[in-house]
Design a protein around this nucleic acid. Structure first.
Lengths: 206, 206, 206, 206
DNA sequence: GATGAATGAGTTTTCATTCAT
DNA sequence: TATGAATGAAAACTCATTCAT
């Protein structure tokens, strides 16, 4: 359902490319690496794709369209800030589970790819994601379900980074399902790792 | 004090290389880029360094020696798990503040560099860091200052990733000092972003 | 009458190839360009032709057979040097009008194609053309209708080049018909662009 | 004096490239061909030049700057249409003599190169040349030194093409000097190849 | 006749590195 | 210390051609 990126051979090749881009990084993955993985000659890849760039483009844009579609549906459901946050985190972990390569590429290569004009949409996605989170957090603070003493921007960055970083260690074949990991993760983010009541906070900078 | 990586010109060149490695990534930074930044020809760099690899090596090993020295001092101080955790986080944020390039390289390039034999020590540092944290967390759980219902391994990864990710957005010239950011960060990690008592946790999967 | 280069689809494809060869040059025109123009895949062209080379061959040899047939008829008519020259020039301009692509290919690609053995006949055509003209000019000089003070070889080259160059600018849809252009062209070549009697020529270098 | 295109090795390499571009055509000349001619490896050329394109660019722009500088001087001298025309033709033949490769590239490759944005200046040079000639011819017609019954545009094309075509056959080592060839050429263009008075012209199309 | 997938040889270009001066 | 010229290996990409379906 979060899938479907083309027909037959093309999709197969994109899958291999994605895996390699995720493992070795975009720059360090040669077109020959991809061709080798596919059992063809490097030149033959150009029968299917314009360039290495366009492979990365197709992988990322397709994936992000689907992911942000899912986010939009969650937000549209109007579950309230806390439940929405949970749903978004869970959806993100599910993306990590079902499309680890794509997430890894998104995580690791965005900065590099942004220099190329054709990847400008990555910037837009970043902005979209930021708005999504800061709106959500601000609403939660207004409704009293999120702490008011934290910098919303900082919390956003914190959450953004931590969610995606999981792609670096989450093992879909391990004992924990994506949802279980997400629940633990949410538990940390929402309630912290310390026990008991939180001590009286000295407001930073005060 | 966390500084001093050679004398004069050599250090200057390493600084420029570090900045470029951090900005563009190790593979994407060419020797010519570094030479250009230094206002010399690329061949001339080889009067100072054996290779591009040895530049990265020198940058990273020097930095990590100093950073892990600091960690060791903190642990040796025997402050108890909570204070130790706080001190380590603060030291890490200070490293981000004082050596952003080095941290960024450590963050972004370790995976790539580990393929080269000479960077095997990075693996050792990772193990060292992991032991440091899991010991610390386990001790905290034993002493009742950290929650017992969380997977220690997962918490470790969580903390590890989130601390270093800050290098991607922390701006030393911004309004928040490294320590202030560290405090907020600690506040999130320790107490969570939700208000009030945490609800009775349904153990995931149960 | 100067037409007929195969049947149906084959001729159609050759026409497209000729147009592209003329526009972009033989080397710069890819087999895919031709296939694209025909709305088929590049591999499919090989059901019709052995190779790109054989397409160019077929285009040129057919065209030149017809053109030189026309020249032979004119010469055989025995009209005398002046009328023969006029008829040849007119026939050439008509070839430009009716087969601009073929003339352009002949003009622009002969030098390149001559390196390939199968195009050796182009050299023969050149020789044939040269003989035709130098004979004609020499005869004209003997009969007193062409100036005797000009180097026949130089005049030949002059005429040869200028006639064919017209393919680069002659526009069949423009206001001047091929014959009209030929007439003006002949007027220049025969009588020059200066007004009045020619001044006493200082023989160059004498 | 019409020379001087850089320092030392660079100029040497450009000269070799120019020769090959002229002989085999720009597209058909590989970077390896040039490197082979220079006795170095193809990659080494990139120590001196950005790209094959930039070699052609440097060759052409430098040459055209000098050539059009010469034209401008001639025009500025205000010799009257006939003498100006003669001087321009002679200067052109001298360019063919001293810079045959550059002229050949200009002649043969302009059409191809114009597709690349960086060669837009070739279009401007063409326009400049056209204006130069049509102005000159029109002035000559007004002053009664050139025939009024000829289409100025057509005469311009005629002259333009024929002058440059000489590069294809003019042999600097042959018996005729550039100026001698230019004189004969001028003699043809000005007075035609026919003997005696020109017959009463039937205006074409009438 | 045409497709879709591939080959294989070659192209331009990149880049870490070397070395005589 | 630095330059200027080069190497050599590999990169991305091109393209005429083949061939099973």
């Amino acid at each position: 359902m979060l899938n479907q990126q083309g027909s037959g051979r093309r999709a197969e090749l994109l899958g291999m490319a994605a895996k390699l881009f995720a493992e070795r990084g975009y720059v360090s993955t040669t077109v020959r690496d991809i061709a080798d993985a596919a059992g063809i000659l490097s030149g033959s890849l150009y029968h299917h794709f314009d360039s290495k760039e366009s492979m990365a483009d197709e992988i990322l844009s397709g994936f992000l369209d689907r992911l942000f579609g899912t986010y939009a549906e969650i937000v549209a459901a109007g579950l309230g800030p806390r439940k929405t946050l949970e749903a978004i985190v869970i959806a993100s972990f599910e993306a990590i589970e079902s499309h680890p390569s794509e997430v890894a590429i998104y995580q690791n290569e965005t900065k590099q790819l942004l220099r190329l004009p054709r990847f400008a949409y990555l910037e837009q996605r970043n902005t979209e994601f930021r708005t999504l989170w800061t709106d959500l957090l601000a609403e939660g603070v207004r409704e009293g379900v999120f702490r008011a003493d934290l910098d919303v921007e900082l919390v956003y960055r914190f959450v953004r980074d931590t969610v995606w970083m999981a792609v670096h260690w989450y093992n879909p074949k391990g004992s924990l399902s994506a949802e279980e990991v997400a629940r633990q993760y949410l538990s940390i983010v929402l309630d912290g790792i310390a026990t008991g009541r939180r001590p009286v906070k000295r407001r930073t900078g005060a």
